[in-house]
Nucleic acid binder design. Structure first.
Lengths: 237, 237
DNA sequence: TTTCAACTCCCCCGATCCGGTGAGGGGTGC
DNA sequence: GCACCCCTCACCGGATCGGGGGAGTTGAAA
């Protein structure tokens, strides 16, 4: 089980098309000798892209049922930085347990280990290794391959970002410092009058920034603009 | 130069106080045999925290001069996912070249390699290795230690996040499904009328959800509520 | 030098949102 | 049985936002 991932990573780095990723992930699964390996990109618009070894029926069902919104792996990893064992997530809600049952019924193993990965503009992805075994075996596995998995996740996301079309046209429209300040103040609950006072400018000037930011962000209204700024990671609350 | 970083990483994982990070980073620098190693957390509100081996005079100057805003390493890495060699950044602006001259004059080496790292809530940090040598030597070094550096950056950020005060204290009262839907629709730019139509309910009902969500999230207004929902990761846009 | 982006200020008015107060039915849990 | 929460619907007045004008300075890039 001494997975030799270095050559696979090198191959991954050479990959020139999206389809190659599927091949690579299958080789990695064999190398790690686990049931499933999945790379799952959660687009900030709710779209999803992924490749992995789950049953396609399950993947489709996951999408159709909107499991993205209730999957504890997603919500749990989204608030964490470190890789997380599925056992440590919150499965207490009824919806979560039903989801888990459904997953197990579609060939998903009982053990999981997911690594959250983040890229520019609020990109968020998961690299998950999944298996069926007892807790002790699983802990030994994750402990042993933790570093390798982090690296694999990193390399995988790097490739996925390269292949993603329509990346880096948007961020060209960076917000100006004042616009960022305006967005930030709105995001923490200030209304226009308060934000203007806080920046020591007239309310009208503030409005100019907001409108400008709205335009640059392609937003339909202020709330939308703040939401986009947040999910692209250009402001933080 | 065969850096044995594994034991240092293990030590890092055991670190129980912020001060330990400074010790660890110095050991890592010696292990890699480079001039400088820096971990630099960049809060978008302008605050900074970091530890590393740069001359404290330079660190203070960096902050005082507001170099954060013009440093090509920051702006360049912020839009990238993969580690980046300083030579590949855009140094064309006058301000950037002046900054570089100032840096070199304060003991910063001519070669640099920075790894962007991102955490939850838009957290952004840099792990940088810096040295003085010729291009060929540097390329060989980065090529050789790329994987190790990625891992070190990852572990370092993990620790920094653990020590960061005010992380994950939120009890996070859960929103009801309808409230989540309402927040999500608002976050993608719908106004109340559109969102209500989209959910096939009256606008008044929608308002009840929004108000309820606002209350649960402790938000001052709708924009604030959406911002909180986003940054807590309970909705995804 | 000229252009251009960022920053600052002003008025008006219709559209939209907020806050308060109200009511009723359905489900879950003690 | 009785809370308690979730879902649904309604009216109104005042606050806020959004879009439409126009105008001046500064500083950096081309």
């Amino acid at each position: 089980m001494a997975a030799q991932i270095a050559p696979i990573l090198d191959d991954l780095e050479q990959a020139s098309a999206l389809e190659h990723l599927q091949t690579v992930i299958e080789r990695l699964r064999d190398s790690f000798a686990v049931d499933h390996l999945v790379y799952h990109w959660v687009n900030s618009s709710g779209e999803q892209y992924g490749c992995g070894t789950y049953d396609p029926v399950w993947v489709q069902r996951y999408i159709d049922q909107g499991y993205l919104r209730i999957d504890p792996v997603i919500s749990g990893c989204f608030q964490r930085f470190h890789p997380v064992d599925w056992k440590r997530l919150d499965w207490s809600s009824k919806a979560a347990r039903a989801f888990l049952q459904d997953a197990l019924g579609h060939g998903v193993g009982n053990q999981g280990f997911s690594i959250p990965i983040r890229g520019p503009n609020g990109q968020f992805a998961l690299f998950t290794v999944n298996h069926s075994c007892d807790d002790a075996t699983w802990e030994a596995f994750t402990e042993r391959h933790r570093k390798d998995l982090i690296l694999v996740a990193h390399y995988f996301n790097q490739k996925a970002l390269e292949f993603e079309p329509g990346r880096t046209p948007e961020p060209a429209q960076a917000l100006s410092p004042r616009e960022l300040e305006a967005m930030t103040l709105l995001a923490v609950g200030y209304n226009r009058a308060q934000a203007a006072q806080s920046l020591d400018i007239s309310e009208h000037t503030l409005r100019v920034y907001i409108e400008s930011a709205r335009f640059k962000l392609g937003a339909l209204n202020t709330t939308h603009a703040v939401a986009r700024a947040l999910s692209r990671g250009i402001i933080v609350v």
